[in-house]
């Protein structure tokens, strides 16, 4: 199908985009990579009055390490995240996750910020941000504020971003050299939407895992920190007994969606399998190091 009629403005600056958002609020949409927005227009699931195209704001693209954290600009294409030496060096979890993001043609155009702003439950980057304790910078005519990933994702496509705010960048603390991470995803075909997935990280010392952080996506309405499962793994040797305890605990952390992709019980099972694989992977990475 064809998109409904809308007005189109090419933003000349962040201030210009914010001014338009202030004037039009929820009637306006920021057009970045358009890899989710344009399908919803073509299918007429969405009818914004105005599209604000930010693709010419090139200073919003790129990932840099400022000595304290990695700043990923909102307009950084997935393909550039994939090629980024900064991401490879400081954010191995993101580097492991990014090949799972869609297909090459979508990665060439889709953006990091677009994925985070949309908050699709199957998206990889929101889960990584939450696992890494990232923060998001939002700007509007009212000013600029930072929101922690833990407070940003509210629900199905729901975030802390107000209708007049634009996502500018993500600030992500670098992973430390004594921790290992793993990213596991289940989808029908490579690059398709995840039906289940986990972004995991932990410190491993002589087989004992600590500072465990497990974030689940795909099955839940939003990226979900599994606090009970994390507590079950914390300070334990990763073995069958720990795996069993984590697996049991996971039932109280997750509330999988019931939809065409599977029943909640099926998805909980998938997430348990992926958890086992992720923590096996983390401990074997630690052994190999």
């Amino acid at each position: 199908m064809k998109a409904p009629k809308f007005s189109y403005v090419r933003a000349e600056s962040v201030e210009h985009a914010c001014k338009l958002l202030a004037e039009h609020g929820d009637e306006a949409r920021i057009l970045a990579g358009g890899q989710s927005l344009i399908p919803t227009l073509n299918m007429r699931l969405s009818r914004p009055a105005l599209l604000i195209d930010i693709n010419r704001l090139e200073h919003l693209a790129g990932a840099i390490f400022n000595g304290k954290e990695v700043r990923v600009g909102t307009l950084t294409r997935h393909a550039d995240v994939m090629l980024s030496h900064m991401v490879a060096k400081y954010l191995p979890l993101v580097a492991e996750a990014i090949p799972h993001v869609a297909h090459v043609a979508v990665r060439n155009r889709g953006t990091f910020g677009g994925s985070v702003a949309l908050a699709d439950p199957a998206a990889e980057m929101p889960a990584c941000l939450l696992a890494l304790g990232g923060r998001l910078v939002l700007q509007s005519v009212r000013g600029t504020r930072e929101v922690a990933a833990e407070d940003y994702f509210h629900g199905l496509y729901q975030t802390a971003r107000a209708p007049d705010e634009m996502l500018i960048e993500a600030l992500i603390p670098p992973q430390t050299s004594d921790e290992r991470s793993s990213f596991k995803e289940l989808s029908r075909r490579h690059g398709d939407f995840a039906v289940a997935g986990v972004a995991a990280r932990a410190r491993v010392k002589s087989g004992t895992i600590s500072n465990v952080r497990l974030v689940y996506f795909g099955s839940e309405v939003k990226p979900t920190l599994a606090k009970t499962a994390m507590a079950a793994a914390e300070g334990k040797i990763w073995n069958d007994a720990t795996a069993e305890a984590v697996s049991t605990a996971l039932a109280s952390d997750l509330d999988p969606m019931d939809n065409l992709l599977g029943k909640p019980a099926t998805k909980l099972h998938w997430q348990r399998v992926l958890t086992q694989r992720a923590l096996d992977d983390i401990t074997s990475k630690a052994k190999a190091a």
Partner: peptide, 13 residues
């Protein structure tokens, strides 16, 4: 220089 989805980009872009 990069392959993209022609249906997910506007002509105006």
């Amino acid at each position: 220089g990069k392959v993209v989805r022609g249906c997910l980009m506007l002509a105006v872009q």
